[in-house]
Amino acid sequence: MRIGILALQGAVREHKRMVEACGQEAVAIKRVDELADIDGLILPGGESTAMRRLMDRYGFTEALRESDLPMFGTCAGVILLAERIIGQDEGHLGKLDITVERNSFGRQVDSFEAELDIEGIGEKALAVFIRAPHIDAAGKGVQVLSKVGEKIVAVRSDRHLGISFHPELTDSLVFHRYFIEMVQENMAKEVLA
């Protein structure tokens, strides 16, 4: 299995290390044609406005909107996946039926780390929230996996996993393993189809 990491800006190196620690091959993706050779894609943390501009410029926005690849977005990545963003006219990729609010925990001085309970996973996961968004509303077909207080911070649908925080800044492989299982399920389905 090959997991791509969108490498326009942000925490690419950390995700690569996590995917490799899970025993899978990780590839940095800088050009649209490289999407053909991967089984799943990670949209890393970074600045979503900066990433979107570069995605538009190099055809990623269109290609990813049309793509059936399983995707995993962390922080800025979940903003890219969301159908709706509070205060903006439209979402970026529209993959997950959720509404997100950017910087919803405050500025950098309010950034924090915490241990989270994750739905369906027995172990607690250490999570780092950096100027993080939260998921204000999740539609049908979207399962809520974790909350901080009342704020939803992790969701999944059939092929998309979106979280507000950064497991890649910790040693916790929980979410990367979870995504890799999603990719495996998807590959199995494709073989059947």
């Binding site: 190196r13 970074g46 950034s111 780390e113």
Partner: peptide, 21 residues
């Protein structure tokens, strides 16, 4: 427990800026 201002949170913020201007 939520902890602010940790080394991980502070260094992590800079990690998110990588590859950028």
């Amino acid at each position: 427990m939520q902890q602010t201002g940790t080394e991980r949170v502070k260094r992590g913020m800079a990690e998110m800026q990588k590859g950028g201007v």
